[in-house]
Design a protein around this nucleic acid. Structure first.
Lengths: 186, 186
DNA sequence: TAAGTTAGTAGACGCATGTTTACTTCGTCA
DNA sequence: TGACGAAGTAAACATGCGTCTACTAACTTA
């Protein structure tokens, strides 16, 4: 009955990385223990440190492997607010949130990794967003949109998927799209 | 040179409460230790548990003593978006954020106190806000505004007071006011 | 087949946490 | 004045954490 998949360095590494991704998103940095990751990945705890160095670096690698808003920031400029609205609405209404969004808003209070998260929010959300905006105060407008995105993550994590009293998806998208429009407009 | 303020039960209780308020706001629930509170309050650690029972209950008491958006939710209805905008802008730009806002967004990932925070966000922000709104989907609109408020807390805590590239206060308030208007409008 | 490399393992290490216990000291009131 | 209750204290408790070390066993290669 024993699994014969042994001595597979790369495979084990991937299982650890995937377990860490899932757990960090669900529980936040502080509440994920090395032992929990090891159990979830069905790997020995010492291998985590051997392959990744330390918990902090594992977290950094997890964030690094996430795409930067795939399909949201790309596409026609005039539909950007709507794509953001759909992204946020889907994450709020679906049975699980966005791993990046959740990991970020759940882990941002930990000094140990604050720098990592700051860089990630900057490079994956704020800067690409600000870069797509024209007119004055682009960075301010991008920041407000970012606040709305991360705040949605916090809300989701507190209230689960019925944070919004469960109206129809289209109503949520419509409202969010209008809000993002005002955020991003020059 | 010794302080002679000894054997003052109520005074000690208040010093502990005040130190806890400050520290929870600054560091979040997880990263505030009982020993840190005791040191900051210049009190013995055992007294914290004697007076408050447990860390969790101390946190609940800290949240309970905070006013519910004093001066923001009250006042003429048509200026509500602007008052919210001023509140958020001031917290983002000033040298320290709002204790409630910070404590909430810094501590929301801890399962131990998730219920406390959830109740607090509901009763202090979302429900009063939704109660002031007319028209359909009041709860959805209040939720989006809440997301923006808590998201601002997260942003502030990540980037400090120059999260917004430091434009003039009036510019920030103006933009936020327009966003809140769209959030809250029927 | 023997030797060497390395993935995988068990367990301990040192430290920090929230909480509790046993004790001391102060203040008050009979 | 002496005794008693309560405020304050020091130290320990049990637990959980990230990390590291010494070891075993599987695969590769000569």
């Amino acid at each position: 009955m024993e699994e014969v998949r042994r001595r597979d360095r790369e495979g084990t590494r991937q299982r650890i990385l995937e377990a860490a991704r899932r757990l960090f998103a669900e529980l936040g940095y502080d509440h994920v223990t090395m032992r929990l990751i090891a159990a979830e990945a069905d790997a020995n705890i010492a291998l985590i440190n051997r392959y990744f160095g330390a918990k902090r670096e594992l977290f950094a690698e997890v964030l690094a492997m996430q795409g930067r808003f795939p399909g949201v920031l790309d596409g026609p400029q005039e539909e950007l607010p709507r794509r953001l609205a759909e992204y946020v609405a889907d994450r709020l209404l679906s049975d699980r949130g966005s791993p990046v969004m959740e990991a970020l808003s759940r882990s941002s209070a930990t000094p140990e990794i604050q720098g990592i998260i700051k860089d990630r929010v900057s490079s994956a959300i704020m800067e690409p967003l600000a870069g797509r905006l024209t007119g004055e105060d682009a960075r301010l407008r991008a920041s407000i949109a970012t606040a709305l995105i991360t705040g949605s993550g916090t809300l989701r994590q507190l209230f689960g998927q019925d944070a919004l009293d469960a109206p129809a998806r289209e109503v949520v998208v419509e409202r969010l799209a209008r809000v993002f429009e005002v955020c991003l407009a020059p």
